[in-house]
Amino acid sequence: MSKELNLWLDDLLKDIKIIQFKRKNSRRVRIDIAPEALPALLELLQGRASYVHLSAISCVDWIEENEFELVYHVWSYETNSLVSAHTRISREPGVYLSVYDLYTPAAFFERDIHEMFGVYFEGSPDMEKFILTEWNGPPPMRKDFDSEAFVNQTFNWEEYHPQWLKDIEAEGGGITTRPEDVR
């Protein structure tokens, strides 16, 4: 049964013009699809092909293309196969539809992506802050947020000056390269 379902799905997806279908191996499929068609695809996968488990939603900030890539990883317990459905939305305004009505776990992932990337998911049950409750800066997972620069601005480096270093400095030696110089 499961084999047949996979074959059926492969055939079906290959025929659909608006998507790009790529089977990576017997248990991994990559699909690239336009954002407006993604919910329908997920509905199809879940309803017709037993992809009932939303393993994760990943977000990638492609800042140079001014796009966010959203990847929906769904797993079928029946065919033991994972479909990763990729779609790209514009970075501005960074709004997309929630798939919470299809997959309950989406609420967690969407909330996380909203918090870290600033993507707003319409229809998601909970877009409140979760982890960064006291953070007022930009969504930190965006590529244009430089956390190291933030840390360097915000915190001081500990300056050590133990006796052995003083002794070496007295002889004309001392620190030549600090760790931050090579990062």
């Binding site: 248990r27 488990h53 317990y77 997959y103 309950t104």
Partner: peptide, 23 residues
Amino acid sequence: LKWGVTGPNLRATGLAFDVRRDD
């Protein structure tokens, strides 16, 4: 299944799924 539970917690509801065996 609906809530996306996995691992021992899922197996405790009677579903025999394990990534080690099934993926």
